[in-house]
Simulated assay, not measured.
Amino acid sequence: MKKQNEETQIRAYQKSDKQELIELIKLNIPTYFEESEEKDFIEYLEKYKEDYFVVESKTTKKIIGCGGVNYFLDEPTALARMSWDIIHPNFQGQGIGKCLLLHRINHIKKQNIKLIVVRTSQLAYKFYQKAGFELEKVEKDFWAKGFDLYQMKMSL
């Protein structure tokens, strides 16, 4: 991994992080998220998050990334789904997203789950493809107009 690991830490989300995460998603609108998704993200943090992690700069103590995992154990094949990955625009392309993704994959492996799904857009699917996820389906304008669903999976 890159030197960036020495400058960041990944830790569990705390309620006190919420406002900083809202600012983080705002920095990624409209590039990676549609404006209405801010409200969906807040609702996710309040009602639907299960395992959620933040990437924090060790020097500034500012959050520069976040991402979660939700579990669907009642499915025919128990699966985990990556949820709400967001990286601060100033830190994209530096390996932080990859570190966070690998952290969550390792977290999932400890729970004996064999399938991971990610639902992303045409704007980020190549990131997951490079990590080993395979494209399952595409649905146009799923998240919002101009934001298509790219559903991907990875078998463990």
Rank of each mutant, 00 (worst) to 15 (best):
N5P: 10
N5W: 13
E6C: 13
E6T: 15
E7G: 04
I10M: 09
R11E: 15
Q14A: 15
S16A: 12
K18R: 11
Q19D: 11
E20L: 08
L21W: 12
I22C: 15
E23R: 12
E23I: 07
K26R: 15
L27D: 01
L27F: 14
N28A: 08
I29S: 06
Y32E: 10
F33D: 03
S36D: 14
S36Y: 12
E38P: 02
E38V: 08
L45K: 02
K47Q: 05
K47F: 08
Y48D: 00
E50Y: 03
V54N: 08
V54C: 03
E56M: 07
E56H: 03
T60A: 08
K61S: 09
K61N: 11
I63Q: 04
G67Y: 07
G67P: 02
G67R: 03
V69F: 00
V69L: 06
P76V: 13
A78E: 08
A78D: 09
L79V: 06
L79P: 02
A80T: 01
R81I: 01
R81H: 02
I86C: 03
I87E: 00
H88R: 00
N90M: 06
F91A: 01
Q92D: 00
Q94W: 05
G95D: 06
I96H: 05
K98Q: 09
C99N: 00
C99V: 02
L102A: 08
L102S: 10
R104I: 02
R104M: 01
H107I: 01
K110C: 05
K110V: 04
K110P: 07
Q111P: 11
Q111D: 13
Q111F: 10
I113C: 09
I116D: 02
V118K: 02
R119K: 13
R119N: 04
T120R: 03
S121R: 05
Q122T: 14
Q122S: 10
A124S: 07
Y125Q: 00
K126S: 00
F127A: 14
F127Q: 14
F127T: 15
Y128M: 07
Q129H: 12
F133A: 10
F133G: 05
E134L: 09
E134I: 11
E134F: 04
L135H: 10
E136T: 11
K137H: 09
V138E: 15
E139S: 11
K140Q: 04
K140S: 07
K140W: 08
F142G: 07
W143L: 12
A144P: 15
G146Q: 14
D148Q: 14
D148H: 08
L149A: 15
Y150Q: 12
M152T: 11
M152I: 09
M152L: 15
K153N: 08
L156G: 09
